[in-house]
Structure formats: C-alpha cells, structure tokens
Design a protein around this nucleic acid. Structure first.
Lengths: 114, 114
DNA sequence: ATATTATGCAACCTCCTGGTTACATAATAT
DNA sequence: ATATTATGTAACCAGGAGGTTGCATAATAT
C-alpha cells in the first residue's frame, strides 16, 4: 500500500531525473560516500577525487536537483547529506516494472500452454 | 546470498550505464511498453510516439547496450524484448546503498545517545 | 516483376554535459 | 588586521546526446 502511494506520487519525468542523476560514475561514488558516512562538505567530498572542486560541485547540484542529497550551509562550508526517499521511490518503480514483466511472462506462458 | 553475488558481479561503471539508460523519459516509456507487453518491432514501438523511427532506434540501442532489452532479427523486422536482469541488479545495488544508509543512521543515533 | 514495408546507415544540427581556469567573496584562524 | 580556507560564480571548451533528413537495402505482399 505504501509502495503504491509512493509510486503514483511521482511521474515518469521525475523518475527519469533521478535515474539520470545516478547515471554517472562520479555521482554514484558521491552517493555511496554520503550513504555510507556522515554529511560532508564539498572539500571533503573532493578529496580523493581527480576532479576539481568545481566539477564535484556541479555533480552535487545534479544530485540535489534530483533530491538525492540535501545541502545545508554551516558556517563557511555547505554540508551535503543523503536523502533516501527518491531512491526508495525509483526502487518501487523498478519493482513495478518487474512485476509487469512477471505478469507478461505468465500470460505468454498460459498462451503457449492453451 | 543471491543478492550479494549479483551485486558484486557488476561494477559501478556498469550500474552507471544502466541508470543512464533509464534516465530518459522516452526510454522509460519504451521499457514500460516492453515490460508490459509482447516483444515488439521498431515500427510498433514508434507508433504513438512523436519521434521518428530513427530516433526510437537510437534509444533502443542505448537500452540494448545496457542489456535492458535484447533484439532478435525476425524476417524483415527486428523484435525487441525486455530483459529483467540488469534492472534486478541495479535494484539490488540500490538496496545495498539504502542498507548502508540505515547503518549510518543507526551509528549516528547511538553516537548521539552515548 | 513490382510495390510496399521494415530496417540500416550516414551526415548533419543544436543543445547539454562534464570538465576546466580564473576571479570574487564569506567565514574562520592566527 | 591578515592570512587561510571553503565556497560561489562565470566564461569557456570539447565531445556526446538526442533529434532530424535522405538514401540504400532486405523481406514480404500483390
């Protein structure tokens, strides 16, 4: 029930945005870092990357537009934190697609058997 | 166990490719059609879309590169079918990320409480 | 044999993406 | 006060994405 509510609350356009945000290795790495650890500043998130701080910032904005992360200004640094909701939503959507496929398979199977 | 196997079988690069393929409304629509219905030809998949057949073909190639669909030539038409595996894999990956986040939350909570 | 249908392939165009460098400003540390 | 650190903003660039048109070819229908 919760699942259905969550699924229908978003449109395909919005799912596409979230998927697109996840469709980049650098951003997947950022998401992994943030899901695994504390909220972090841009400088912290840039450490260990080959990219410039500005590049990382742009990636973070993409993730923020998709609501996958939130940013809060804290003094001179802006801390980014993971938000699990959009990912939960696209997971539900993928479940929905998989279910549709299972039903399709069942239909094809019963068609063959008849 | 199966989940873990599946998850570790793919790298972040590969997940990114699948997410990127899903990160477009037109392609999400194609995936929905194919998961919901029979394998279909390019012409069939173009029907109802505003785009040209060639544009749809390009989108199908992107989905095919991500292994989300397979194509089989049948006479003069090439039929595309849904393949559930890559989507199952990225779903597992998202589960993994969510779990990491849950653990992080638990850690933060116990830190606050201590 | 010929017309029709389904597809493949290539060239081209525009806009977006992912990256850079350079400079400005805000907050903190000394 | 001054230096340092963290970030914001802007201009710029190369390449890729998403779309088109045009033409060639393979398979089927008449």
């Amino acid at each position: 029930m919760r699942k259905t509510l969550r699924r229908t609350s978003r449109r395909r356009c919005s799912y596409a945005r979230v998927f697109a945000a996840l469709g980049d290795e650098t951003r997947l790495t950022l998401v992994a870092k943030l899901a695994k650890g504390q909220p972090s500043s841009i400088s912290q998130l840039t450490e260990g990357s080959q990219l410039t701080r500005q590049a990382i910032t742009k990636h973070l904005r993409v993730l923020e537009d998709a609501r996958i992360v939130r940013s809060v200004r804290a003094g001179r640094e802006s801390r980014f934190a993971f938000d699990p909701e959009p990912i939960a939503e696209v997971k539900d959507y993928l479940d929905f697609v998989s279910e549709q496929w299972d039903e399709t398979l069942a239909r094809l199977k019963s068609f063959v058997e008849s």
